[in-house]
């Protein structure tokens, strides 16, 4: 039983990281109709910024968190304003290619700005090991699950009750009608990019505390993307749950079936789910009036 529980706990913890990233994917898709292939790279950049703050300014959790979140907001807004807004109205394929180009630039910037060595992000008690019965778990792993749950609740409230949240849903549903209703699509896009960078950055920080920083951290984006597809590309909340499901499935498959199966387990689940629900577990079916 301990074996199963340890696999489940570790799977949920890494799944929460995927889930946060996946929420970022969905937030951008929901408001802009775009898949941001630089999501993993944004995660990595914010984590490196957090490490820089922790090692040069202060190792205080509040200072590092505030600094990293502010940096994530600036990064998200800058990408939207400088890179994405000029692409408004251009074919989706071109815009997606721009995000791929952006990913390569951000990835390379790590060794230019920082270095190629892995680094430890030692914040608070995040790296400490908590033992519950026969289980071992790091503080950051518990914190990331709690954060995911809080953000899921926060996003649900935001979309349901806040003016901006309702406006985002309106833009996602029909941006032209939303525009006619006086909603600024550009502002909504900017908020989506900023929010996406923040949740991705939070994921990156928790991941770096648990597993260290390294220039190949961007690969988290590749792991989280299936979570978004599974949960529903247009469902921020579904993507969060999708991450947990992917992490759990991967770990259970790795623990019971072998490490080779671990890599493909999540994708097998996606294939099966998409065959039954092509729009993901929590995504909305596109209905077109003909």
């Amino acid at each position: 039983m301990d074996y199963f529980l340890q696999l489940a706990v570790s799977g949920i913890a890494i799944g929460a990281v995927y889930g946060l990233l996946a929420m970022g994917f969905a937030a951008i898709y929901k408001s802009t109709g775009l898949v941001n292939f630089a999501q993993g790279e944004i995660t990595m950049i914010v984590a490196y910024i957090a490490w820089t703050i922790a090692t040069t300014v202060s190792g205080n959790v509040v200072v590092v968190s505030a600094g990293a979140i502010a940096a994530a907001v600036v990064l998200g807004l800058a990408i939207e304003r400088i890179v994405m807004r000029p692409m408004l109205g251009e074919p989706v394929f071109s815009t997606v290619m721009v995000t791929i180009g952006l990913a390569v630039i951000l990835r390379s910037s790590i060794t230019f700005i920082w270095d190629a060595y892995p680094h430890a992000l030692d914040l608070g008690t995040g790296r400490g090991i908590i033992r519950i019965g026969g289980l071992g778990v790091r503080g950051a792993q518990i914190a990331v699950v709690g954060t995911l749950l809080l953000l899921l609740a926060g996003f649900w409230l935001f979309f349901r009750y806040s003016k901006f949240g309702v406006a985002m849903r309106a833009v996602a549903a029909d941006d032209r009608t939303a525009l006619l209703m006086g909603i600024s699509a550009s502002r909504i896009h900017a908020i989506a990019w900023a929010a996406s960078s923040v949740v991705a950055g939070i994921a990156g920080i928790f991941f770096a505390i648990s597993y260290d920083l390294s220039p190949d951290m961007y690969q988290l984006g590749l792991k989280a993307f299936p979570a978004t597809i599974l949960g529903g590309l247009d469902s921020v909340l579904g993507s969060g749950f999708g991450g947990i499901l992917i992490g759990l499935t991967e770990n259970l498959a790795g623990g019971y079936l072998g490490s080779g199966v671990k890599d493909v387990a999540g994708f097998v689940m996606i294939v099966v789910v998409l065959m039954i629900r092509p729009f993901g577990l929590f995504g909305e079916r596109d209905i077109e009036r003909v």
């Binding site: 991941f207 770990n251 498959a253």
Partner: peptide, 29 residues
């Protein structure tokens, strides 16, 4: 697979098998 970052299930299997001498055949991270 190269690029793997989470080794929780792999190492749990190492523990479960009762490994006493372990060769970590990765590279750095």
């Amino acid at each position: 697979k190269k690029g793997q970052q989470d080794f929780s299930s792999d190492i749990l299997r190492v523990k479960d098998a009762g490994v006493e001498v372990f060769l970590a055949g990765g590279i750095i991270s």
